[in-house]
Design a binder for these strands. Structure first.
Lengths: 210, 210
DNA sequence: ACCTTTGACAAACAAGTGTTAGCTGAACGA
DNA sequence: TCGTTCAGCTAACACTTGTTTGTCAAAGGT
């Protein structure tokens, strides 16, 4: 059955609410300080109308975070095979440039996720941590496959992936309030740091120790 | 001239206010959601009395952040020479265990710093970023000296330090809501990741590339 | 001893908060 | 066509917020 007029309008209004909330957070404001009436005003709705779409403010926040997770996921997803075929140097380049593009397009998403990862709201925190763990797991799996395809063994893929994400997120946070020029420098640094990490993983796999 | 009764009492009250604010944030609450009257209630003061110690709420927040920066600084400071003498493996151990101890004692400080690093308040953000940059710079200088003392050259110390801090902070965030047992595992992971990084720096210095 | 300073206070202000109750009018299913 | 559903509205409740004003009593300075 096709979508009725009412259903379409309701869905659109719901999206307008989420969009308004995101707009209000563009200045870097936290999710905690976001008011229901403020969101309603931003999208030209009566305050109480929001309750037709979300049972309470927490639900709105969770929906917001969910949409951020979705966009992060979409942005960092890529065809698995390519990672394996292009080799480690280009894989690092690809990873960084993909992340930089995500930051340029959805910097406020990223800010929200990192902020709420340490927020007081347990539901939000768990949701985000699960998402980030998925990111690490996928990257680890890719590292394993890429290493195996080249005949390598023993690289601690899980730790390498976790450290790689930490490095990228660290750079990402710095990029958030940097100019476009400064961002390019920071991206270059991130690339170098990741290369260092991969070299270290390789050294460790071949039995080298400190 | 010795401290008068009034001066001492004022200083003590000021500290009581800051302590109350920190207590209220123990559950992981953000600085934004902290109310003046709430803080006043927590330390048995009239709401308006706080204005005798801080011109406004922003000043209170800044004082809070300053005290967090101070404690982070104290916790991570150490005798410079030891880092150079003990060699890279123990240096990594020392760094991690120092950071873990800091997290155990001042986990909420750390949470506050990481949260506000991305907050909307520019003054807070800048203050924290300056502090973290100092941390990176000091670590980089130590790496340079340690490498030089062992006759190494060409290690990209600045990038290595930045990546190391990113790795530690990433682990730290995960540790914040982990049990003591899980924290030990995470610390072990951080150690491994840092070792990987140092090995990579060494490889890179000797001309190895991906 | 006397006057000034000042930390703490209660009362009030204007505005904000999340949420509930009840109404209206347009879209819907029959 | 007629009754039902329901998104959006206004009004209200019971708070909370940061801040200003003015009072009061204790400590400080002379």
């Amino acid at each position: 059955m096709a979508e009725t007029v009412r259903q379409r309008q309701k869905r659109q209004t719901r999206e307008r609410i989420l969009a308004a909330a995101r707009t209000l957070m563009e200045g870097g404001r936290g999710l905690d300080s976001l008011g229901l009436r403020e969101v309603a005003r931003e999208c030209g709705l009566a305050a109480t109308s929001i309750y037709n779409h979300f049972p309470d403010m927490d639900a709105l926040g969770l929906a917001l975070i969910d949409s951020c997770c979705f966009r992060l996921r979409s942005a960092m997803e890529y065809e698995r095979r390519s990672m394996i075929e292009i080799g480690p140097a280009q894989a690092v380049d690809e990873l960084v440039s993909r992340f930089v593009r995500y930051l340029n397009e959805h910097g406020n998403d990223f800010r929200l996720l990192v902020q709420q990862r340490l927020g007081s709201h347990d539901r939000y925190r768990l949701r985000i941590q699960r998402e980030l763990q998925l990111l690490v797991d996928e990257l680890a799996e890719d590292v394993r496959q890429a290493v195996a395809a080249r005949g390598g063994v023993g690289v601690p893929a899980e730790q390498e992936a976790e450290a790689a994400i930490a490095i990228m997120f660290g750079s990402g946070i710095s990029m958030l309030d940097s100019s476009a020029a400064a961002r390019r420098v920071l991206a270059e640094h991130a690339r170098l740091q990741l290369q260092m990490l991969v070299l270290g993983g390789r050294a460790m796999a071949s039995g080298e120790r400190l």
